[in-house]
C-alpha cells in the first residue's frame, strides 16, 4: 500500500508486498513517476534518469523472483527524499535468491540493467540480504528548488 507520508523535511514513497510480476513493475513505475514529479522539482532529464533506474531495479526484482521460485515472490519499494540535503534514496528489495552475475545467461540481449542503474545514479548497490536482495539507488542533490525558497 502507498503511504502518503509527508512532512516539511521530506517526502516518502512506499509500496510493500507487491507481487513481483512485470505488470506490477510497470504500475509501480508509473506511480513512482507521478510521486516524483509531484513532490520534487526535478528537471526532465533527471526525472527520466530516476524513473529508468527505478524501473531497472524493479525489473531486477521481477527476474529474481521468477528465476527459482514456482510462483513469483514479492518486492518492496521505498523512496525517501530529504529536502535539507536534496538527497533521494530508493530501495527495491525482493525475497529472491541472489545469483552471481556469472551464473546468469551471458546473452548479449540482457544484463544492461545494472550498468544502466550505475550510469543513471550517483550511487547504486546491489546487496544480498538474509531475506533476498536489496537494490539501493541514490542521487545526492536532485532538488532544483532546494536553495530557492523564493
Amino acid at each position: 500500500m502507498t503511504e502518503p507520508d509527508q512532512s516539511s523535511s521530506g517526502a516518502r514513497f512506499s509500496k510493500t508486498d507487491v507481487v513481483a510480476i512485470p505488470e506490477h513493475a510497470a504500475s509501480v513505475r508509473q506511480e513512482f513517476s507521478t510521486w516524483l514529479t509531484g513532490h520534487i522539482a526535478v528537471d526532465r532529464v533527471k526525472a527520466s534518469d530516476i524513473v529508468l533506474a527505478v524501473n531497472e531495479a524493479l525489473a531486477n526484482a521481477v527476474e529474481a523472483a521468477y528465476a527459482d521460485a514456482p510462483a513469483p515472490g514479492v518486492m518492496h519499494v521505498r523512496a525517501d527524499f530529504d529536502r535539507g540535503s536534496g538527497r533521494l534514496t530508493v530501495t527495491v528489495t525482493d525475497e529472491g535468491t541472489w545469483r552471481p552475475a556469472t551464473a546468469q545467461r551471458s546473452n548479449s540481449a540482457r544484463g544492461r540493467g545494472i550498468p544502466l542503474m550505475q550510469a543513471l545514479t550517483d550511487h547504486a548497490s546491489i546487496e544480498p540480504t538474509d531475506a533476498g536482495t536489496e537494490v539501493r539507488l541514490q542521487w545526492d542533490v536532485i532538488d532544483a528548488v532546494a536553495a530557492g525558497g523564493g
Binding site: V45, A59, N107, S108, A109, R110, R112
Partner: peptide, 30 residues
C-alpha cells in the same frame, strides 16, 4: 520510456540482421 528490455531487443536484432541488413536507430530525447 525505453527500458533495458527494449535496448536488449535492439542489440539482439542488430546482431541477428548483420551483416546482410543494416539496422540503425532514430532517437533524440532524454
Amino acid at each position: 520510456f525505453l527500458a533495458s528490455a527494449g535496448m536488449g531487443v535492439l542489440v539482439a536484432a542488430h546482431a541477428d540482421l548483420a551483416p546482410a541488413v543494416r539496422l540503425v536507430i532514430v532517437a533524440d530525447s532524454p
